[in-house]
Structures are given as C-alpha cells and as structure tokens.
C-alpha cells in the first residue's frame, strides 16, 4: 500500500514554483513588447471613442467588451502558436535540458499567456473605461461582463496553450484556433438549425447558448435567459472550471507519461 502510494507520488509531475516563476518572467519579457504595444495602441482610440459617446450606454460598452475579448482571444491564440513554434523549432530542448520539468514548461506557457493578456485587457480596456466612465464599473452588467470576459479569456488561454504543447506545430495550432473560434461554433449552429428545420426535434434557445458557450463561455452570461445575472456568471464559471479540471488531469498524464522532446 505504502509502496503504491510512493509510486503514485513519483508519477506526479514535479512543480517548483520558483522555476515556473522564472520561466514565466522570461517568456513575458521576450514577448510582452509587441502585445503591450498593441494594447496601448488600442486603448487610446477606445478612450477617445468612449469620450465621444459620453456618457457611454451600457449596451454599447458591452458590445465593446465582447469585441475586445474576441480580439484578445485571437492574440492569445498567436501567443499559443509561438509556444508551438518553440517546440517545433527545437528551442524547447534548450530549456528542458535544465531541471525545468515538462509540467513546469507547460504551466509556464499557460501562466505567462494568462498574465500577459490579463495585463493587456486591463491596460487596453478596463483602465480607459475606469478613466472615462468610472460609474459604469459599478453596474452589474459591466462588472459582470468584465468578469465573464476575463473567464473566457482564461478559458481560451488554457485551451490554446494545451493545444500548443500537444500539437507541437505552429500551423496545426493556428488551424485548431481558427476551428475553435470560428469554424466549429458557426458550423455547430448551422447543423443544429438544419436539424431543427428538417426534423421534429426542438432545440431550445438555452441549448443553443450552451453549445455556443462551449466555444465562447461569456455567451452564457450574456444570452442565457434571464440575461446578465450572477447566476449566469456562476454557471459560466462552473463550465470553465470543469474544462480546466479535465484539462489538468489529461495534461498531467500527457506531460508525465508521453511528452517527449
């Protein structure tokens, strides 16, 4: 019994927080210049736009939140494809020939993408919003929308980074991200609509929202009736956490048992 427990413990991936922190800061340092430039470039016209339509209406702000989140998800996809490019080129071997474990390498990419795009989202959107219209942050719709979109950003970051480590090819990762963000959600909706049209099956609006929510979890907050409630936010968080848990278990097995460099 004790031997089996010891064996199971040895099978767990090694995670040393100082090494992860060091590699996260290294990745962010190398990549932040371009992405922060984009964020700051976006924040200025956004602030001007919000000033022009002052006081900004809630619906308009929500539209901007959703638009920004889509752009940032695409940028997070580019960052994930950079991770795949690093594995594809062989640069990963440089880092993994040190005590940095495969699990630490994988989590470093997830954390650095998350840290960077949370910073970009904050600088590019939240800060201009607080400056231009501080009162709007206090509303449930806007603060809820910001949380919903942040959860979605984390969701995309984790899924794209996992795809990068598993697929190990920049081209395949870009294909996956395009499929995940565009092709799959649209084709799923078309298939369901056709199914409903040619058969007696009734597909509720809520089912549509959940299916689309698998790709864009913030849709659960925005479009599940009644709209934009704390209950919707909790359901979105549950979906995100469930997928995180599944990915954590799968990635733990993958990096420990199968990932070779």
């Amino acid at each position: 019994m004790r031997g089996r427990l010891q064996h199971r413990l040895r099978e767990l991936p090694v995670i040393a927080p100082p090494r992860v922190a060091s590699h996260v800061s290294y990745i962010v340092e190398r990549n932040s210049g371009v992405y922060l430039g984009i964020a700051l470039g976006a924040s200025l016209p956004l602030a001007i736009f919000m000033t022009l339509v002052f006081p900004p209406q809630i619906d308009l702000l929500i539209l901007l939140v959703v638009f920004m989140s889509f752009i940032i998800s695409i940028l997070a996809g580019f960052m994930a494809s950079a991770a795949a490019g690093e594995i594809e080129s062989g640069e990963t071997l440089l880092y993994l020939s040190t005590p940095l474990s495969k699990a630490e390498y994988y989590y470093s990419w997830i954390f650095s993408t998350t840290v960077m795009f949370t910073a970009i989202y904050s600088l590019g959107f939240v800060v201009p919003l607080i400056v231009v219209s501080p009162r709007s942050i206090a509303t449930l719709e806007i603060s809820g929308a910001l949380i919903a979109v942040t959860l979605q950003l984390l969701y995309h970051t984790v899924i794209f980074s996992s795809a990068a480590v598993t697929l190990k090819s920049r081209t395949r990762v870009i294909g996956f991200i395009t499929g995940f963000l565009l092709i799959l959600p649209v084709s799923s909706l078309i298939v369901l609509a056709l199914l409903e049209a040619v058969s007696d099956i009734y597909i509720s609006d809520e089912a549509f929202v959940w299916i689309f929510g698998l790709y864009y979890p913030s849709f659960i907050f925005f479009f599940k009736e009644p709209n934009m409630t704390t209950g919707n936010l909790a359901q979105e968080a549950m979906l995100v956490l469930t997928v995180f848990a599944a990915l954590f278990i799968a990635s733990r097995r993958y990096v420990k048992r199968r990932m070779e460099v």
Partner: peptide, 26 residues
C-alpha cells in the same frame, strides 16, 4: 547538455539567456 545544432532564441542578448538558464539551474 550541449545538443547537436542547438536552437537559441535569436532576439535576446547572450547575458539574458545565460542569466535565465542560470536561474533554472540554481
């Protein structure tokens, strides 16, 4: 370990890479 034809990040300074590798190796 010195790999055959190692791939390095090209856009950083020698010191940055060595400092980072030193941190990973304590």
């Amino acid at each position: 370990f010195l790999p055959e034809s190692p791939i390095y990040p090209r856009n950083i300074k020698v010191r940055q890479l060595l400092d980072h590798m030193a941190r990973l190796k304590a």
